[in-house]
């Protein structure tokens, strides 16, 4: 089963991921989470490290428009993804192994759908 590292955010997407568990909405158990304050603060080097260490995919559960810090969060997070994908391509990696989506604090179903779909893609069965 593909291993996915999720960068989630403490205030916004973490509650949604917790809620998925609370509601027993199952997703692949090879999905691991590291929490950060804001998705706009994720360093491309961290993402590349995850790939180099064997993660098949990285999913950024972004704050989106709910970001408590800045209304430009979505653009900033998208910029991080774009820059990282350039590095990935330079290293010969499939840029689609990095995904982002806004996951709000109540978006448990959306989270499960995203990571489950991502896992299928990474398995090559999508």
């Amino acid at each position: 089963m593909p291993r996915i590292l999720v960068f989630s955010t403490e205030k916004i997407s973490d509650p949604a991921i917790d809620l998925a568990g609370l509601l027993k909405q199952h997703y692949p158990p090879t999905v691991y989470t590291i929490s950060v304050p804001c998705s706009s603060g994720i360093k491309p080097a961290w993402i590349i490290r995850a790939f180099e260490k064997g993660f098949d995919g990285v999913f950024i559960a972004a704050d989106g428009t709910d970001c408590p810090f800045s209304p430009t969060c979505t653009e900033k997070t998208a910029d991080i993804v774009a820059k990282t994908q350039v590095i990935m391509e330079e290293k010969g990696m499939d840029r689609a192994r990095l995904r982002m989506a806004a996951i709000c604090s109540v978006c448990s179903e959306a989270f499960v759908k995203h990571v489950s779909g991502f896992a299928k893609y990474l398995e090559g069965s999508d």
Binding site: M1, I17, D18, A20, G21, H26, P29, T30, T33
Partner: peptide, 17 residues
């Protein structure tokens, strides 16, 4: 929340996680 409950359908994998 991100272990035993989310993966109650797969105990061995939940333990590994």
């Amino acid at each position: 929340e991100q272990g035993s409950w989310a993966h109650s359908d797969k105990p061995a994998e939940a333990t590994e996680k």
